[in-house]
């Protein structure tokens, strides 16, 4: 019972916190270099693992599907199936999980440490609102980076599948692309994937900055908050993915 009340009040605090962040976002456009700096530490530093992961996921998909498809003699559809699985599902979800592990945990740890070392209090006493100057740019940067990372993940995955499927396994290059273009719909598939990644970016960034801001300001508290960020945002991404998929492809 007590745990339930605690979770409800955390959810409430998180929502109030979110509204403060959103209120702080319009004035960020006057200080856009704050956001650019955060896109660097949130997005650019997650780029590398996203590229590598996307490449391998695409290559593995191509291998697995190729052997299944040969039994039906339908290897021409390889590109289309890889593309659909990446664009609709794996791109947004896996990129969001990587993002939560790499950027989300780093965000929580950074904000938590700033709280533990009284930097946030220090800003408040300098009459600077830390939610506007510290939190909001990080949140916005996460929100901007996530769809880009998901798109990069899918694109690299398709190239990886192409290299395995066409160069290694001998699928016809023309069939690979023409099947993709015939069957992958821009609005139903690509757009829905982008919408998913936007929602995931919102959720992961929100959880990460909230956990950091709300943590107990000790080394133990920061460590726990970091773990919570990864666990909660991964679960939230998977749950939201189910909800969104159910809405989009009913």
């Amino acid at each position: 019972m007590k745990a339930l009340i605690n979770s409800v009040s955390r959810l409430g605090r998180g929502t109030i916190f979110l509204s403060k962040i959103l209120a702080g976002i319009p004035q960020l456009f006057l200080r856009f270099q704050l956001v650019v700096q955060q896109v660097y530490s949130v997005g650019v530093q997650t780029l590398f693992i996203t590229l590598i992961a996307g490449l391998f996921v695409g290559m593995v998909l191509a291998l697995q599907l190729y052997y299944t498809l040969t039994t039906f003699g339908a290897t021409d559809t390889l590109g289309m199936i890889v593309d659909l699985s990446l664009v609709r599902e794996l791109g947004p979800v896996v990129a969001a999980l990587l993002f939560a592990g790499r950027a989300g945990s780093a965000l929580t740890a950074e904000i938590g440490l700033m709280k533990a070392t009284e930097q946030l209090s220090g800003l408040e006493m300098m009459a600077v609102d830390p939610v506007h100057r510290i939190i909001a740019p990080r949140f916005l940067a996460g929100f901007i980076s996530m769809p880009l990372l998901a798109a990069i993940f899918s694109a690299v995955g398709i190239l990886g599948a192409y290299s395995v499927g066409v160069d290694l396994l001998g699928v016809d290059s023309g069939a690979f692309w023409s099947q993709i273009q015939a069957k992958v719909d821009f609005y139903d598939d690509v757009m829905n994937g982008i919408i998913k990644s936007v929602v995931f970016g919102f959720i992961v960034s929100w959880i990460a900055v909230f956990e950091g801001y709300d943590c107990i300001p000790t080394s133990e508290g920061v460590a726990r908050a970091t773990t919570r960020t990864v666990v909660h945002s991964s679960l939230a991404v998977l749950a939201m993915d189910f909800v969104l998929t159910a809405i989009m492809y009913q």
Binding site: T117, E118, Q119, S121, G122, L123, E124, M125, M126, A127
Partner: peptide
């Protein structure tokens, strides 16, 4: 607060 300075224990430098 602009008229109040505060020196934190840890310094609280950014």
């Amino acid at each position: 607060r602009q008229k109040m300075g505060m020196l934190f224990q840890s310094g609280a430098l950014l």
